[in-house]
């Protein structure tokens, strides 16, 4: 990542005092004809010049990367890391207080430590996003008075590729919002063969698990009845997101409830599908499904009026 250093230093309070002192020295040199005043003035000016050159050199040779966690959640701190390496062969790199600004004007600060020549270090900070969506770091900037404190250089990180998807804050979906239309259940996987629900009865064959012999049925008949059992069918939740309506708190609340319902179901081990008027994420379980759903919900926008008019306001539909 490119480090852009301001070409000219800005003045600092100390630099202004030093300038005042330098002007006084020049006047004293003219007044008295004492060349030592000229010499001290020249050394003062040269120190500032050498400081500017040294700071420019060490800052331009430094390399920095800003890394943003790829995914985050509204209201949860997002880790931001700045890795810095001092590629200058002799000069140290000062500690820098980086001010990070996102595309939504959220800011945070990270202080990287001073680095000796050739050293690398990283520092991290936390950024708490307030809205869902794609989060970009638009500006990463630090200021330093290094080395003499007479001039201030501004360092900016350019070409920042750091991008994070901020998922909505999951809200507990209201039970009233959940319908119980069993007929629309979607089965996407087969049941597990182990469980308690009786499924199939047949005469016992050698090799069958003796523990699954149905003793009651065996008592009623003359043959040993073996009963296959299986687990109840996996819970499948199809979350339907209604994209109609204007953007605003109501829409955001719907998205948050959808995220809450999906996450809760996935946490219970269920299958979750997501449906909206523009997409269908097939039912699946696990972390990858959670990521897919949250990625979609992070970026989803309200539908235009024409496409949303025909759809109802139901958010989530659960089925079994």
């Amino acid at each position: 990542m490119r480090l852009e250093v301001s070409p000219l230093p800005r003045s600092t309070p100390l630099g202004r005092w030093a300038t005042l002192l330098a002007v006084g020295l020049l006047f004293a040199g003219i007044n008295t004809g004492n060349n030592l005043f000229y010499l001290v003035f020249a050394l003062l000016a040269a120190s500032e010049l050498a400081g500017v050159l040294a700071a420019g050199r060490v800052l331009r040779r430094a390399r920095a990367t800003a890394t943003l966690a790829a995914r985050g959640q509204v209201g949860s701190p997002l880790r931001v890391t700045i890795a810095l390496s001092n590629r200058c062969r002799r000069l140290p790199l000062p500690a820098l207080r980086w001010r990070l600004t996102t595309s939504r004007d959220e800011t945070t600060e990270i202080v990287t430590p001073p680095l000796a020549a050739g050293e690398r270090a990283s520092a991290y900070g936390r950024l708490t996003p307030s809205r869902r969506g794609a989060l970009r770091l638009t500006r990463i900037e630090a200021r330093t008075d290094f080395p003499l404190g007479l001039g201030r250089r501004i360092v900016r990180l350019r070409d920042i590729p750091a991008l994070a998807l901020i998922a909505p804050r999951p809200l507990q979906a209201s039970p009233l919002a959940l319908s119980h239309e069993r007929g629309q259940a979607v089965r996407t996987t087969e049941r597990d063969e182990r469980g308690d629900d009786p499924h199939e009865a047949r005469p016992y064959r050698p090799g069958d698990d003796a523990r699954q012999i149905d003793w009651k049925a065996t008592a009623r008949s003359n043959t040993v009845i073996w009963r296959q059992r299986r687990s109840p069918p996996p819970r499948s939740l199809e979350v339907c997101l209604d994209r109609s309506g204007p953007p605003g708190p109501a829409f955001e609340a719907r998205v948050s409830r959808a995220a809450g319902a999906a996450i809760a179901a996935l946490r219970r081990g269920g299958l979750v599908a997501l449906r909206s008027d523009e997409t269908l994420l097939p039912a699946a379980a696990g972390a990858s499904q959670k990521r897919r759903i949250l990625d979609y919900l992070a970026l989803v926008e309200p539908a235009p009026k024409s496409s949303a008019a025909s759809r109802g306001g139901q958010n989530e539909r659960t089925s079994r």
């Binding site: 050394l43 120190s47 050498a50 040294a54 140290p92 020549a117 080395p147």
Partner: peptide
């Protein structure tokens, strides 16, 4: 660690 600053001081003297 500020070992490299001697070079800056030397540069300041020469430029001065």
């Amino acid at each position: 660690r500020i070992r490299g600053m001697s070079g800056v001081a030397a540069l300041a003297l020469l430029v001065g």
